[in-house]
């Protein structure tokens, strides 16, 4: 655990080494996120209430998505790169180290731009999420559990490259699918799509369920959230380690 923490600290220091570039990328991402907030405000201005969701609720959902994506794609930036790293034979340098390989990979790289999401998400919640202590606690709980689900899912998708080959396209498709579905209110979807969001592409557990918990806390739903987070952590870990048996070295030691 100490080695992983030290790696993450180094990755952060590396990301911050060029401060101008870091803050420039952060500000670009913040501006990008603000564009989406403007879109939602304009959309709801035109449409009004949508199956029980108004602009306010969607902004809370968006703040959860920003923070979750900030953790999964900013702090653990390699979570969406497992497929590409495997295809490039770039796991060699990790596999030679006396550390848990997945934990090391996830803590090796910090993405400056997505760190902007991590900074903006809580600010949006504080400004627009009516943050009482209970709601703030649920926000934090949802972000932690949602991040675990998102990282587990992305690692599992990326690890598919180890089984079926390719250049990490499976991870790209999974990444696009879960982020797009997680950006919209859960109640928009019905039937098979909704079923998909609770199972194969667990976007519901990245934003939808956490947003619902912030609105109305429900103990069984919170317990379900914990169970699903544990399940996806296990799925990600298991798929990666099983996939490693198929990994062929690319003889790449330094990148």
């Amino acid at each position: 655990m100490t080695a992983v923490a030290a790696t993450l600290r180094t990755a952060l220091a590396n990301g911050l080494a060029n401060r101008n570039s870091f803050w420039f990328q952060v500000s670009l991402m913040v501006a990008n996120d603000i564009t989406w907030i403007i879109f939602w405000v304009l959309f709801f201005h035109q449409v009004g209430n949508l199956r029980g969701w108004d602009a306010h609720d969607v902004i809370v959902l968006f703040s959860i998505l920003l923070t979750t994506a900030g953790v999964a794609l900013g702090l653990c930036a390699n979570s969406r790169k497992i497929g590409q790293l495997s295809a490039d034979g770039a796991l060699d340098e990790t596999l030679t180290l006396p550390v848990p390989p997945l934990a090391h990979l996830l803590s090796t790289r910090v993405d400056a731009a997505n760190t902007g999401d991590l900074l903006l998400g809580p600010v949006v919640f504080l400004l627009a999420g009516n943050p009482s202590p209970e709601r703030a606690a649920m926000f934090l709980f949802g972000v932690v559990a949602g991040s675990v689900v998102l990282i587990g899912f992305l690692v599992a998708c990326g690890s598919l490259t180890l089984f079926v080959g390719g250049r990490g396209e499976q991870a790209d498709l999974g990444f696009n699918a879960i982020l797009i579905f997680a950006s919209y209110p859960l109640d928009l979807f019905g039937g098979a799509t909704k079923m998909l969001l609770f199972t194969a592409v667990p976007a519901a557990f990245v934003t939808g369920v956490p947003a619902r918990l912030v609105r109305n806390f429900d103990t069984p739903e919170a317990l379900l959230m914990v169970a699903v987070a544990a399940l996806f952590a296990l799925v990600g870990w298991g798929t990666f380690h099983l996939g490693l048996r198929h990994y062929s070295s690319g003889s790449i030691w330094i990148r």
Binding site: Q46, E169, N176, F181
Partner: peptide, 26 residues
């Protein structure tokens, strides 16, 4: 190409749900 087509299909599914709800509400 297949990733792009998959991405496009996902967008169409999401947008169908979004705009259907929006039009129904209006």
């Amino acid at each position: 190409m297949s990733v792009r087509i998959g991405f496009f299909a996902i967008i169409l599914v999401v947008m169908t749900a979004l705009w259907t709800a929006a039009v129904d509400a209006n």
